[in-house]
């Protein structure tokens, strides 16, 4: 196999390692977010080790090697995010939950019954529980406050900026 071929296949190998490690770590009892991070890191580390080998360096000498590594890692980041999105939809997507609910109820359900199970109150409670569990918010004196962790807030701010850049409007918050 040529080094260009090996370099092209490397992101797929990295993804395979990412998925395997993530599943193992999740099944060992780790939290979902931690299993994703560990899986992603494992795939990245495996690729770094392989990229040191001449067989995976791609053609084009020293700067070509660096360029190949950029492309390989860029593709891997894309795969990693796609994998995270796919799994996260299973947990966070209301559309997916509704479809699974319909499947469980013989593929059909009265709209009123559906709205009894999936309504803004239930969603608010579920989201607050998840944010509290992830320590992105905390409760004090009967109100919710930011922190101690701020990753989700930073993501929300980034999304707000991107929304403004692409669509010209901000999140209603």
């Amino acid at each position: 196999m040529s080094s260009d071929a090996a370099a092209t296949l490397l992101p797929f190998a990295g993804l395979a390692i990412d998925v395997m490690v993530q599943v193992l770590v999740l099944r060992a009892g780790a939290r979902f977010g931690r299993s994703l991070a560990v899986g992603f890191a494992a795939g990245a580390a495996a690729m770094a080790a392989l990229l040191c080998l001449p067989a995976f360096a791609g053609s084009g000498g020293g700067s070509g090697r660096a360029g190949t590594a950029l492309l390989v890692y860029g593709a891997y980041v894309g795969f990693g995010y796609g994998y995270f999105s796919f799994l996260n939809l299973n947990q966070a997507s209301l559309r997916v939950r509704i479809m699974k609910e319909l499947l469980a109820e013989g593929e059909s359900m009265a709209l009123d019954d559906l709205l009894l199970r999936y309504n803004a109150e239930h969603i608010l409670d579920a989201r607050l529980d998840r944010l509290l569990e992830g320590r992105q918010i905390h409760r004090q004196r009967g109100v919710f406050l930011s922190g101690p962790r701020s990753e989700f807030l930073n993501l929300a701010r980034l999304l707000d900026v991107l929304k403004l850049v692409t669509t010209g409007r901000k999140t209603c918050g």
């Binding site: 969603i123 608010l124 998840r130 918010i137 109100v143 929300a156 999140t171």
Partner: peptide, 21 residues
């Protein structure tokens, strides 16, 4: 407009006063 994003942005915007349910 992700519900979780709306929640954290609203809570952040309220500062020390926080937001009730």
């Amino acid at each position: 407009d992700s519900p979780s994003c709306q929640i954290v942005l609203s809570i952040d915007g309220a500062g020390a006063a926080g937001r009730s349910r």
